[in-house]
Every structure is written in structure tokens, then in C-alpha cells.
Write a protein that binds this DNA or RNA. Structure first.
Length: 575
RNA sequence: CGGGAUGUAGCGCAGCUUGGUAGCGCACUUCGCUUGGGACGAAGGGGUCGCACGUUCGAAUCGUGUCAUCCCGACCA
């Protein structure tokens, strides 16, 4: 490709609306252009990168025995009503009506469609297992799209779905996908960690995410997920799923006897702990949540934080949020109290389900709210002063330096970008949508399903997050839009131009993806652009050509060498 | 959904306080000159100042509304 005709406009400055480096660089280097909030045009360079990633995904999926298909982007509401998700998916599902007022939606994912394909096409166990996948744009009307391609509303995704006879078959399909994913990201030049993750409200299911780890000290917080991991045994999990053992802590308040004390203006645990001069570990805090419209009081030890996904799952919920002050007031009125947040306790609450984290059950002589403003009960004990809730679960957020449940070492935390997710669905969709096959014994059974996603466009952005410097993008060779760029320093110098042209032609003939910067620009412009765009190798034809030497430069390492044009060509072809 | 901020040329910004009919840098076009790290000079083209209503003789500027975008919060009992 000749740079003079390549459709790309590099900018001298970063766009003002971009925050994270991948967004900034992809816009500035002319890869993408925003069309609307969270919706981007993929320009020629970007499209080449995306196709590179897609092809790696295709090769590995095909090798893993999956078959590529393409499902419609627009889907009828009926399918979603059948699965039950039409009413629970919420505002992320982009709904629309056709000219006949039939309800439709833009596909945020394709479990419904694939299940309908399977129930029509698969009749016998002899046709199983099967794994079908597609690479396609998805649309999710995110609450808050941001970070450019990392969290767009429309994005490119590879989604695969496996169908098996039984759980053992699913386990095998799942493992095959996990292995394929590992290879895919490796080939894309991305180091990933496979971590356990929340599997939603579907009991007993298993889910893993593939995370590209980003350094905490990087210039932004593009990693949206906290990943807990054990350096010793390898345990790792998303914060929404991570479990841990607690460090030793003082859990006996040693108050002697239970009594109500004045604790004016202690609205937070910190204030209360300071006022009573006791550690937060002997306080039981009570938080009011709204889960699918129902009130829930969650108890947890004062030094700990509720993990909302875990709490929501404990009630099989779909939506969770902290209660508003007016809702707390309503609860207080209904229960005959008048306390505000900060003084709430479980005792005597009406119309509220109560759940406790495991951290509270060992508390002795502790401090707890009693629904009276500016007062707390100190020296409380379960069964004596307050009933221990019958529902006790792990609903707490793990913390760095908690102990690993597998090996008791200390857990570490890091930020990660989720580029892939694999999931054991089981029979959730096949049962809801009556998708069955006839088994060996003649009985009708629902398919045992798995689903497996890779964010293609997000993977590209994650690659930029991991691989860049102050001059621009540094693409891993496997997903770079072009492998090498040939830059004649002066377009006035006939020798330089003709040598550059000949190198270009020879590389083209050898099937190398190469750019010739044939623009009538000054050297500085061409070199800056080459760095910004991030082509892995550069062959610069300058004054040294009179000694038959060109400069060969590797973008990633910045190592340069003066070699002959023939050597440069051979080296590129060999790589 | 709540809080904060911003909308002026393709990109980055000034002008607004104190109303008088729009400017700078980059990019773009032409010419000259220049060619190893985003040169220089000259001459150009491009904007209903997000949109609507209002105040006024007159609105980018003041008021009201609206839309869009960005950031923060959804971690507090």
C-alpha cells in the first residue's frame, strides 16, 4: 500500500474527549472515528487489525472443531420472550419496532437464536456434540459507554455455542474452548490470565474470564476489573467472584455487658470506630439494598465491604442498588423506627429480608445499630441481644492480602481487561425454549449448552493498552495492519526513491504486507507517522544508500541496524 | 439515575465578564523554498458559534428550555 493513497488522517494532538491511551492513540493515529456515543467507524488500518484478530480466532476455532455461521443482527422479540429474557434484560437491550409494530431487538448476544437453530436442526444424540460460532457486531445500550473501543455500545464479538449430550460432554467442550482461547490470545501477542468469574443467577454454573492484566501504575484505569490472584497456587478470580480467608482480627469487643450508648453523629463505621475507640472489626454494619424491588438488609463486619454481585446472586436477583434515603425512611416508618443511615440494625425491621456475611457470625460483644439515631448497642451477642440471621453467605469483597482459600498464601490484586469469557450454560436456554434431542435410550433431553465469547474490537484496544510508548502504538506483529513500512527520507533524492520503490516491489512480490511512504513530506513527518501508526518494522532509505546501506528498525525494541537492502528484504521475509 | 463540566472550521483552542455580526495553531488548496524526527514564506478555501425560544435596534456573548458530549459516583450505614 502506498501511503499517498492510504485513507488515514493522523492528528498532531490527542482528541479531547478521550481518556484512556488506546482510545487516544487509535483516534490520533487514524484508526477509528467516533460516529456517536460508544459507536465507532473502523477505518482501513483498524479494519485490517480487526481482520487479523478475526482470522486468528477463526483458525483456532476451526482447529477446535467449531463451525462458523452468521446469525441475524436483528432478532424478533418472541424468542426473547420464550427464554424469559425479554423482561429481565433491561435497558441494555436495544428494542425497536418494525413497520407492522412487531417488537424486535438488536442482538446483544445470541443464545436465543442459536437455541432455536439447534432445536430445529438437531434431533439426535448422533449429531452431538456440536459447536457453532460467529463473528459479528453486537449492540448493547450500555449505561455509560467509555474508553473508546474498550466499552462501546456497538462492538465486534466472536460468540460460540456448544451443544452436548451431558455434563461430561460440556466439560470437555468447555476445556477445548479454554485451550483454544489461550492460544488465540497468545497468538495475538497478549498475555492473559484465565480467572474464575461470576456466573450470574444461574446456580451451579461455571464461568471463566480471560483477562489482559494492566499495570496499576499505567497512566489510566483502562482495566475495569479487579482480579485477585494467588502468586503461589495460581488461584485467580474476578472480584465479583473471588473468595478468601480472613486474616486474624479482633472479633471480641470485650464490652462486659450489653448496653445502649450515645454515639452522636457517627454516620460511618470510621466515625463510630473512632468515637468508641474500638477497631472496626468488632462492629457489625447493616446496609439496606434494593434487589429487584425488594428490600434487603445485609450485615457484614465493619472493616469489610459488600460485593454487590455476590449479594444479588444470594437472592437470585437481576438488579441491585443501595437503598435511597427515602426508602430507608419508608422502612423505618413501617417498622416503627425513625433512624437514618448509620444507625440501622437488623432487629425489628419489617418488610426486609436479612442476610449476613460469614464475617459476622463469630463476632462477640460487638457493636451494632439499633434503629435509634445517635445510639448504638455495644457488647451485643448473637442469640442474646440480636438474632443471628438464618441466611449466611459469602457476600463480601475480597481484599488484597486476604488468604487464599486453596493454599493460605496472601492474595494479590491487579487490574484487568476482560477480552474473553467462557460459560457453562447447562440447560437454561434449552429448557426454557424446549430445545431437545433424542438420546440413545429414546428419551427426549434438553441440550447441555456452553457459550464462549471474545471481544474482537476490545482485544485490539487491549493490545494497544499493553503495547505502546510515548511515540505511539506498537502492534504485536501478528495483528499489525502492515508488517513493515519503507520510508525514503527525501522524495527529492532519486536514488533513495528508486531503492525504496524496489524494496517495496520485492516485498510485495514476496507477499509481505508493506507500506511505502511515498508522500512528498519531510522526513520528520514520515518518521513520526510510522511510529504513531505502530508498524512493527521500518526500513529507512537515507543518505547511507550511497554505501548501499539502509536502516532497519524494530519498533518495539528501538534497535536499529544499517544493512543492505537485500539483507533487509531477506530479514523481513524470514520473519 | 445522581453530581460536575463542556459544546465556536476536520483536530486542538481563544473570544463571552463589559452584546456591535468571528479569530489563532494544526490540517486542507496553490506557489516558492526545504528534506534523518511533526520546517519556513506568501496567497487562499472552509464555520446558520449544538438546537429552540426569549431579551435587545443588534446575541457566539445575556436569560429560559432542550439536545449532545466528557468526567466522577453507583464501595456509603
Amino acid at each position: 500500500m502506498r501511503m499517498s493513497v492510504l485513507f488515514v488522517q493522523t492528528l498532531r494532538e490527542y482528541p479531547s474527549d478521550a481518556e484512556v491511551i488506546s482510545h487516544k492513540l487509535l483516534v490520533r493515529a487514524g484508526y477509528i472515528r467516533k460516529l456517536a456515543n460508544g459507536i465507532y467507524n473502523y477505518l482501513p488500518l483498524m479494519w485490517r487489525v480487526l481482520k487479523k484478530i478475526e482470522n486468528i480466532v477463526r483458525e483456532e476455532m476451526d482447529k477446535a472443531g467449531a463451525q462458523e455461521i452468521l446469525m441475524p443482527f436483528v432478532q424478533p422479540a418472541e424468542l426473547w420472550q420464550e427464554s424469559g429474557r425479554w423482561d429481565v434484560y433491561g435497558k441494555e437491550l436495544m428494542r425497536l419496532k418494525d413497520r407492522h409494530s412487531r417488537e424486535m431487538c438488536l442482538g446483544p448476544t445470541h443464545e436465543e437464536v442459536i437455541t432455536s437453530i439447534a432445536r430445529e436442526g438437531i434431533r439426535s444424540y448422533k449429531q452431538l456434540p456440536v459447536n457453532l460460532y460467529q463473528i459479528q457486531s453486537k449492540f448493547r445500550d450500555e449505561i455509560r459507554p467509555r474508553f473508546g473501543l474498550l466499552r462501546g455500545r456497538e462492538f465486534i464479538m466472536k460468540d460460540a455455542y456448544s451443544f452436548d449430550i451431558d455434563e461430561a460432554g460440556l466439560d470437555k467442550s468447555y476445556q477445548i474452548m479454554a485451550d483454544a482461547y489461550k492460544r488465540i490470545f497468545e497468538r495475538c501477542g497478549l498475555e492473559t490470565k484465565m480467572v474464575q468469574s461470576d456466573s450470574g443467577a444461574i446456580g451451579g454454573s461455571v464461568s471463566h474470564e480471560f483477562m489482559v492484566l494492566v499495570n496499576e501504575d499505567s497512566e489510566n484505569n483502562a482495566g475495569e476489573n479487579d482480579v485477585f490472584y494467588c502468586p503461589k497456587c495460581g488461584y485467580s478470580a474476578n472480584s465479583n467472584h473471588a473468595v478468601s480467608l480472613l486474616k486474624e482480627a479482633l472479633t471480641d469487643g470485650k464490652f462486659g455487658k450489653a448496653q445502649i450508648v450515645d454515639t452522636p453523629n457517627t454516620h460511618s463505621i470510621e466515625e463510630l470506630s473512632k468515637f468508641l475507640n474500638i477497631p472496626a472489626t468488632v462492629i457489625c454494619k447493616t446496609l439496606i439494598y434494593v434487589i429487584d424491588g425488594k428490600y434487603v438488609a445485609a450485615l457484614i463486619r465493619g472493616d469489610r465491604t459488600i460485593e454487590e454481585t455476590k449479594l444479588m446472586n444470594a437472592f437470585q436477583g437481576n438488579e441491585i442498588r443501595i437503598a435511597r434515603n427515602d426508602e430507608i425512611e419508608e422502612i423505618m416508618n413501617n417498622s416503627g423506627f425513625s433512624a437514618v443511615a448509620g444507625f440501622i440494625g437488623p432487629k425489628g425491621l419489617k418488610g426486609v429480608e436479612i442476610i449476613a456475611d460469614e464475617t459476622v457470625k463469630d463476632l462477640k460483644n460487638f457493636v451494632i445499630g439499633i434503629n435509634q439515631n445517635d445510639k448504638h448497642l455495644t457488647g451485643a451477642n448473637w442469640g442474646v441481644d440480636v438474632e443471628l440471621p438464618s441466611k449466611i453467605c459469602d457476600i463480601r469483597l475480597a481484599e488484597e492480602n486476604d488468604k487464599c482459600v486453596e493454599c493460605q498464601s496472601e492474595l494479590k490484586v491487579t487490574k484487568g481487561i476482560e477480552v474473553g469469557n467462557i460459560f457453562k450454560l447447562g440447560t437454561k436456554y434449552s429448557k426454557a425454549m424446549s430445545a431437545t434431542f433424542t438420546d440413545k435410550d429414546g428419551s427426549e433431553k434438553p441440550f447441555i449448552m456452553g457459550c464462549y465469547g471474545i471481544g474482537i474490537s476490545r482485544t485490539a484496544a487491549a493490545a494497544v493498552e499493553r503495547h505502546h510508548d510515548e511515540h505511539g502504538i506498537i502492534w504485536p506483529v501478528a495483528i499489525a495492519p502492515y508488517k513493515v513500512i519503507v520510508v525514503p527520507v527525501s522524495d527529492q533524492d532519486e536514488t533513495q526513491m528508486s531503492v525504496a520503490e524496489s524494496i517495496y516491489q520485492k516485498l510485495l512480490n514476496a507477499g509481505v504486507e508493506v507500506i511505502l511512504d511515498d508522500r512528498a513530506e519531510r522526513a520528520g513527518v514520515k518518521l513520526k507517522d510510522a511510529d504513531l501508526i505502530g508498524i512493527p518494522y521500518r526500513i529507512t532509505v537515507g543518505k547511507t544508500i550511497k554505501d548501499n546501506l539502509v536502516e532497519f528498525k524494530e519498533r518495539a525494541s528501538n534497535i536499529t541496524e544499517n544493512i543492505t537492502p537485500e539483507q533487509a528484504i531477506d530479514r523481513i521475509i524470514a520473519m
